[in-house]
C-alpha cells in the first residue's frame, strides 16, 4: 500500500545545470584584489573601504534572510547594534577581548532573531508587515539603549585605546591590519551565505520564497526554516556591528540602532543583488563609491549621493530587479548563448 513508483531509481546521475561557479571565482578574485589594494595605492581612503567592507559583510548577513528566504527584514540594525554594544561593553567594562564580545553579541542577536521570528510565524506576520515589525524591534532597542545607564544612555560606550594592544584587542598600529580583518569578515559572510544557499536549508528557503503554501505542501517546515535562517543572519550581522564599534572605537544608540542603519544594510544587498553571493559586496562597493564621488564632485548639492543612489535604485528595480549582480548574470547568459551559436 505504501509502495510507490519512485523507489530506488537506478544510480544514474543526471545533474541538470550544476550551478556555474563563476560567481565564486569572481568573488575570490575581487576579495584577493581588495586584500592587496592597500599595498599599492594611497592610504587615505583605507578607512572608507574598511567600513565599506564591514558593511559588505553585514549586508551578506542580511541577504541570508532577506535574499534567500523571501522575508524582508528591515530591522537588522537591531543585530548590528547588539554586536556593537556587546563588543564595546565586554572590552571597555570587563577588559576582555572584543572578539569574545563579538561572540556574546552573536549569541544575543541570534536569540533575539529566533524569538522575533517565532512570534512572526505564530501570528502570520509576513511581507511588508514583517518589514515594519522588524523595524519596530530595532527602534525598541534604540530607545532601550538610550535609557539604560549600563549602556551610557545617549552618550553610548567608548572603546578605550589600550597600551600594547594587538590583534587580540582588535587594535592595530598599522591601519592595514583592520582593513584585512574587514576583508576577512566580508569573505566569511559570503562563504556562509553560499553554504546556506547550497545546503538543504537553502533549498527549503528557495521553495518558501517561491510560494509558502506549496512549500508546506512539499513537506517543508516553514517555521523552523525561517527561525533558523533569521538566527544565522542575525549572528553574521552582529559580527559586523562588533567590528564596526571596535574600528570607530565608539558606539551609541544612533550609530547602532537607527532606522537608517537598517535601511543602509538592506539597500546595499538589494542594490547588488540579494540572492547572489557577490551581490552585497558589489552593492556595498557601489554605494560607497557613489557617496565618495558625489561628495568629491558634487559638493554644491549636499545630498547628491542620496539623489544619485535613489535614481540608481529606481533604474535597477525597473531593468534589473536582481541588482547589479543580476546584470552580470544576464550578460553571462547572453554570452553563452552567443557562443552556443558559433
Amino acid at each position: 500500500m505504501t509502495t510507490q513508483a519512485t523507489t530506488s531509481p537506478a544510480p544514474r546521475r543526471v545533474r541538470p545545470r550544476r550551478r556555474p561557479s563563476l560567481g565564486i571565482i569572481v568573488g575570490i578574485a575581487v576579495l584577493a584584489a581588495l586584500a592587496l589594494a592597500p599595498l599599492t595605492g594611497s592610504r587615505h581612503s583605507l578607512g572608507i573601504w574598511t567600513v565599506a567592507l564591514i558593511f559588505a559583510g553585514v549586508s551578506s548577513g542580511w541577504a541570508i534572510a532577506g535574499g534567500l528566504s523571501g522575508l524582508i527584514p528591515l530591522g537588522h540594525a537591531a543585530f548590528f547594534g547588539i554586536g556593537g554594544y556587546a563588543s564595546a561593553v565586554v572590552f571597555a567594562k570587563y577588559d576582555l577581548s572584543p572578539w569574545l564580545g563579538i561572540v556574546v553579541g552573536m549569541v544575543i542577536a541570534a536569540a533575539l532573531a529566533w524569538l522575533m521570528t517565532v512570534l512572526a510565524v505564530r501570528f502570520k506576520v509576513r511581507g511588508p508587515y514583517f518589514a515594519l515589525y522588524t523595524l519596530a524591534w530595532a527602534e525598541m532597542l534604540r530607545i532601550l539603549a538610550s535609557n539604560l545607564d549600563y549602556l551610557g544612555k545617549t552618550n553610548g560606550v567608548l572603546v578605550p585605546y589600550k597600551v600594547d594592544a594587538g590583534p587580540a584587542d582588535l587594535q592595530f598600529s598599522d591601519p592595514r591590519g583592520f582593513y584585512l580583518v574587514a576583508v576577512g569578515y566580508a569573505a566569511l559572510a559570503m562563504i556562509v551565505f553560499l553554504l546556506v544557499k547550497r545546503s538543504p536549508l537553502g533549498w527549503r528557503l528557495s521553495a518558501i520564497r517561491g510560494d509558502e503554501p506549496t512549500a508546506a505542501a512539499s513537506g517543508v517546515d516553514v517555521a523552523r526554516s525561517l527561525t533558523r535562517t533569521m538566527a544565522l543572519s542575525a549572528a553574521m550581522t552582529a559580527i559586523g556591528g562588533g567590528l564596526y564599534a571596535q574600528y570607530i572605537q565608539y558606539i551609541d544608540p544612533e550609530l547602532a540602532f537607527n532606522v537608517s542603519v537598517s535601511i543602509d544594510i538592506a539597500v546595499r544587498a538589494i542594490l547588488g543583488g540579494a540572492v547572489l553571493v557577490l551581490g552585497p559586496l558589489l552593492g556595498s562597493v557601489a554605494m560607497t563609491s557613489v557617496t565618495e564621488l558625489t561628495q568629491k564632485y558634487m559638493d554644491a548639492l549636499p545630498s547628491a549621493s542620496l539623489l544619485v543612489l535613489g535614481l540608481a535604485i529606481i533604474a535597477l528595480a525597473h531593468w534589473f530587479p536582481t541588482g547589479i549582480g543580476g546584470l552580470g548574470v544576464r550578460l553571462k547568459r547572453i554570452w553563452s548563448r552567443r557562443s552556443d551559436r558559433v
Partner: peptide, 24 residues
C-alpha cells in the same frame, strides 16, 4: 501542520498551481 502531513504521505496539488518559478 501541512508540512507534517506531507511528510506522513498526505500529498495534494493546488487548484491554482504555483510552482517555484525561479527554480529549475
Amino acid at each position: 501542520r501541512a508540512d507534517q502531513r506531507a511528510r506522513m504521505g498526505i500529498s495534494r496539488t493546488f487548484q491554482t498551481v504555483r510552482p517555484f518559478l525561479d527554480e529549475t
